[in-house]
Write a protein that binds this DNA or RNA. Sequence first.
DNA 1: AAAATTATTTTCCTATGCGATAATTTTTCC
DNA 2: GGAAAAATTATCGCATAGGAAAATAATTTT
Lengths: 213, 213
Amino acid sequence: MTKEAHLGRALRQLRQQNDWTLADVSEMTGLSISALSKTERNQLSLSYDKLIQLSQGLKVDITTFFEDAPGTAAQSGNSAGPAGRRSINRADDGRMIKTPNYQYVYLSTELLNKKFVPIVADIKARSLEEFGPLVAHDGEEFTYVLQGSVEVHTEHYAPAILKTGESIYFDSGMAHGYVACGDQPCRVMSVCSSPEASLINSLKQHFGEVDES
Amino acid sequence: MTKEAHLGRALRQLRQQNDWTLADVSEMTGLSISALSKTERNQLSLSYDKLIQLSQGLKVDITTFFEDAPGTAAQSGNSAGPAGRRSINRADDGRMIKTPNYQYVYLSTELLNKKFVPIVADIKARSLEEFGPLVAHDGEEFTYVLQGSVEVHTEHYAPAILKTGESIYFDSGMAHGYVACGDQPCRVMSVCSSPEASLINSLKQHFGEVDES
DNA sequence: AAAATTATTTTCCTATGCGATAATTTTTCC
DNA sequence: GGAAAAATTATCGCATAGGAAAATAATTTT
């Protein structure tokens, strides 16, 4: 039985505002009418699972049911992604960019405003000296080793070696850099969460002009 | 007993990051050690009251314990991403999930609230009939073929065949499905923009219970 | 306004939450 | 490398969550 009265009030208010009956809400959420009734009258303290069922069924943010609720709201339908579209990358498609350290191929560049940016890169630098200063950019980055092995250097960690098939996910706000191990070719698939333009910009910043085909 | 695994992982992560023992957390929150232990292992679905006790005791926002609902995903400066952190996936790391059509390995699952979700999947279905109805989920999806070739089926397009090294980016709100071509093993690397839990949820929705190790 | 219909609460029962303590595992310190 | 200590997990039992259906209250119909 509940001490916190907020859940009950929030639920009842939501329900009445939308002119839903308990049966309606039961239908939408899969919770029983009796459980809902008791919840509204604070005679029942729903478990985690049921809370999720409730908020998903009613399509409201979970914070609706908690006091503090720091104005979350961030609703879905944000801007112009590839709504209903797709883009295929064949063998040599993509936007190729060369720097002293990497040769990038940015994929699916004809789709704008993607939620993340996929890139295939060949690592050229063979030592940290050759690489130069590490680079940081907003967002998060994931890298999967397709071929060879890489040494990943990051600001707050000891370098880590990744072999083919291994991967890493990190906050790309930490400065970072990839160095090829051994002398076989070394290729990775990276995904970045910051916009393509800002990634390419930071390359230009770092290397001056840049070789694009 | 819980179905939603997020609470357990979020709590354990929070606890370990701060070097707290279960006893410490029990002290701070007033919940029993055994309840906490079970919660972390998803054997217990805390009630509303206890959730509030937990978040207040640990002085974290309640949303820490919920996979960000509909909206939040690709926003920039939002809460608890892997700020300043990294996560490495060795050969057999990851959260493995099997369905009739795929065998997934979700990567970097110890980082919560990632901006996108990397997955390695082995495609098992060999025909569209075998695959069954296509599946849709919020957000965007990118897939790169690591091995073999796949036929990608999507709602508004003719099927496309991708060979090793090719890739596709599309709106995953379109129903879609992957089918292996030929009879060699077929492995892909996928990235999805919607939260891990909601992906796994839609799997469960689709297949009923699901085989997780 | 009584009957019929629809909405809500109560009752009763089973499954699950959750705490005390015992058993086990992991870590620390000789 | 084994004993002691610390941390985690398992077991048991009572209390509460939560569903089905009966009882009551509120609306609508005729």
